[in-house]
């Protein structure tokens, strides 16, 4: 029982990290159907933003970096959308490969700018250490990430459900032609969606600096898992992504505890394949009359 409780915060924090890195994808992949492999490099861009800001913000760099990274990564995404991805709408598989080319270039740029070795971002002093309740330890940094994920989810939910722009975004996702007929400038909505999705990756990247070193390969560690979360959660479904991220995080931590880390990934993969047998389109599905 104690082991069970001990693994709980670990699982939750893995889940929070997964959720944070996958949130941006619910926009770019979920809303627009763009498989952006460079998403991982936007995470990296966010992390390096925090690293750069250290020189004048010192230990509070992480906080300052959150909004800055959002804009940095968002702008990168916007440029990518305007120059390349725009030409590839309706060809999701080609975008996947195209953006992989972009991600290779960005990784090499990072290597040339910041050097191949990993760098460290110092966490603010108030995030060092951890809390303990009756033997269950939870580092403050992990709690911060969990909180960051929750804040992001609430903000996104509010944006999508309560603002005019967000509702337009949903309309375009559900039926592009009809949205265009109703007077929505779909290409502008696409730009905005891509900006926000990429910006969220930047925010996630700042969060990642708290739990590990920052390096040019940062994105590649997270990208596959992030996509799995979206696949398991259902395309463009915020609640699906939240649920899937935490379920996968907990699953990961418990399997890892009972067997070993190398098996955990295999089990998670098998569970997802099994799960897709029951719900091939993920946890939550947007009902439509499209052929599936």
């Amino acid at each position: 029982m104690n082991a069970f409780l001990n693994q709980l915060p670990i699982g939750l924090s893995i889940g929070a990290v997964l959720l944070l890195v996958a949130l941006g994808l619910t926009f770019t992949f979920g809303q627009m159907g763009v498989v952006n492999m460079a998403h991982g490099e936007f995470l990296m861009a966010g992390a390096y933003t925090a690293y750069m800001l250290q020189s004048w913000a010192g230990r509070q760099a992480v906080l300052v970096a959150l909004p800055v990274a959002f804009f940095v990564a968002g702008l990168m995404g916007l440029v990518l959308e305007r120059t390349l991805i725009r030409r590839f709408y309706g060809r999701p598989l080609d975008t996947l490969l195209l953006t992989w080319g972009v991600s290779l270039i960005l990784q090499q740029v990072a290597r040339d700018l910041f050097g191949a070795p990993n760098v460290q971002v110092k966490a603010p002093t108030w995030l060092v250490g951890g809390a303990e309740w009756s033997g269950i330890r939870m580092p403050y940094a992990r709690m911060f990430i969990l909180a960051l994920a929750v804040v992001c989810v609430v903000a996104i939910w509010f944006y999508l459900a309560r603002t005019k722009q967000g509702r337009r975004m949903q309309a375009v996702m559900q039926n592009r032609e009809l949205a265009a007929c109703s007077g929505i400038a779909t290409s502008r909505v696409d730009q905005r969606t891509f900006f926000i999705g990429s910006g969220l990756a930047g925010v996630a990247g700042v969060g990642l600096t708290l739990i590990g070193p920052v390096g040019p390969a940062l994105g590649t560690y997270y990208i596959v898992d992030a996509f799995l979360v979206v696949v398991a959660g259902g395309l463009g479904q915020l609640r699906g992504a939240v649920l899937a991220a935490f379920v996968l995080g907990l699953l990961n931590s418990y399997v890892e505890y009972w067997s070993d880390a190398s098996l955990a990934k295999v089990v998670v993969f098998a569970v997802i394949i099994g799960f897709l047998q029951i719900r091939p389109q993920g946890l939550f599905v947007l009902r439509s009359r499209k052929l599936t």
């Binding site: 992949f29 498989v35 598989l93 996947l96 799995l228 897709l276």
Partner: peptide, 17 residues
Amino acid sequence: AYFAILTQALAAAFVIW
């Protein structure tokens, strides 16, 4: 794209294993 992502995840899991 779902299939592509699943096969990619398979590759990742296989290597870790």
